[in-house]
Design a protein around this nucleic acid. Sequence first.
DNA 1: CATACTGTACTAAGTGTTATAGTACAGATA
DNA 2: TATCTGTACTATAACACTTAGTACAGTATG
Lengths: 125, 125
Amino acid sequence: MFTLNYGDRRPLYAQITEKFRELILTGAMREGDKFPSVRELAASLAINPNTIQKAYKELENAGFLLSIPAKGSFVAPVKRVPDPAKIQELLQKLRSLARELKFAGAEREAVLAEIENIYKEENKA
Amino acid sequence: MFTLNYGDRRPLYAQITEKFRELILTGAMREGDKFPSVRELAASLAINPNTIQKAYKELENAGFLLSIPAKGSFVAPVKRVPDPAKIQELLQKLRSLARELKFAGAEREAVLAEIENIYKEENKA
DNA sequence: CATACTGTACTAAGTGTTATAGTACAGATA
DNA sequence: TATCTGTACTATAACACTTAGTACAGTATG
């Protein structure tokens, strides 16, 4: 499904959390889709099942995953209500990132184009 | 100068690194400005000097800080060469962040406006 | 019913990171 | 001379991360 980067200094469970969030945000995984089972993914990545469980628990807390004991883990129903607090938090990160881009010499138009592209994206099946 | 957030799960030295990077990126600190001394900042934040030293070493590796033994630590000269690899890395983060914003319900125009504002900013003294 | 799968919940151990405490040295400054 | 600066160590405690192993209840399939 994906690979882990052991050179990355972030913990394994955080890498796994991020990968799945990307899959959901890009539309590669949609509401109701089944996650690999804890043991199956652990075997596939050659790591401990507990680490997968920790990643899944994080995803569940973040509202991306819904666990049903004895059945499996699934992509949670999307809440269609804008979350102002979350948006403000993300905009703060955006400002910080934009300043770094400006500092690194990125063109204003290039940065704007990236945003446009994301908002043009169809959430592909 | 600033405060630490002990609720944050990131290490103290990383928080300190980030604060100074913000100060430099926003122009609040400029080339040649003096950082507080290791011991002074440690006393001010009520933490160990070693932790400050670790933060300063990170800033130095990142090119933001220049240490002169027995004199002090200063904001490093800015390199005016665009760094394509760094820009690509940041753009990748930008895309991820933009998808999260879209997912959270942020308006396209609001996101674009933030970028515009950053690029309009004069680097204030 | 039996078997194999699912998520979940523990304990125990090893490892690495983080942070503190303390000491020390050489160079600059006043 | 006294005090400041960055730097470099050692030692220790606390915590996070990861692995290993075991166990339980519920579901699906034969």
